[in-house]
Design a protein around this nucleic acid. Sequence first.
DNA 1: GCAAACCCCAGTGGAGAACCGGGGTTATAC
DNA 2: GTATAACCCCGGTTCTCCACTGGGGTTTGC
Lengths: 145, 145
Amino acid sequence: MELSTKSEYALLALLELAAHHHTKEPVQIRQIATEQDIPDRYLEQLLASLRRSGLVRSQRGAKGGYLLTREPWKISLLEIIACIEGLDANSTVSKQQHSSPEGIVIHEVWQEACGAAEGILQKYTLQDLLEKRNARQQPDIMYYI
Amino acid sequence: MELSTKSEYALLALLELAAHHHTKEPVQIRQIATEQDIPDRYLEQLLASLRRSGLVRSQRGAKGGYLLTREPWKISLLEIIACIEGLDANSTVSKQQHSSPEGIVIHEVWQEACGAAEGILQKYTLQDLLEKRNARQQPDIMYYI
DNA sequence: GCAAACCCCAGTGGAGAACCGGGGTTATAC
DNA sequence: GTATAACCCCGGTTCTCCACTGGGGTTTGC
């Protein structure tokens, strides 16, 4: 089960937006692209998807760029991946026109497994990732353990 | 997160083998294919993969076919999917040459999510699926609840 | 020895991933 | 009010994988 670079790019980009969120100023594609080493024209498409699904909004013109529409602690990783991977909420539930009883139980178990993974992705927010990154860079912050 | 038909076919086929396991007689590709509505030439390739990874063994010649190498309760669904999807044990662990700290934390969380899903698939065996299917066909077996 | 089964290898059509590029639109700044 | 910095939209390209098809070869039971 590999994480697609598509989703990884999206997560990196949103993480970058989250890091600049307190400034209230838009971040440009170019900036994110060079910072995280992502091909900029490709990143543009991904940000367009994120914008269409309402996770970010864009400011056009000079000094423009992208901004999160919500606070970093209100955006779960599941939302991001679901949006970029194109799986709308019902797609996991539907698709149940399987005839054989074997097919049905297989899909039940598969759904259970997916649900477990999605549960993990649901509970982490952009804020959590930022904190995890900071903790990794300054491990002395863990002194209180 | 869709289950590939590839994995679904493999699970269906092994489920068929598990159902006939007590007879100790090989089951033919054609039989599985017609029973579960799988293109037989394609199923042949999948069974070849399963054989190469040691989950099934084959009997050549007339009256030949396929047999499970282990009992149905000793084969987890994870093994099957891992084999057919081509992810050997270390592939999930390696691939860690990511430079940015953001990339690292993203992959950590992704691994946690995958681990959760794999945990589910690990705990179910072919036997469990057979029982689930039977319970579905004869719900009166649940009387003891 | 022949037919039933598996075995190996090769190719095909379609879909999606991961890009690149051209030209258009909007807004700031001088 | 024009130059410029940014986003916006649409299209094409290369590559890989999936799902499948087909042609032969080999082993075995009767």
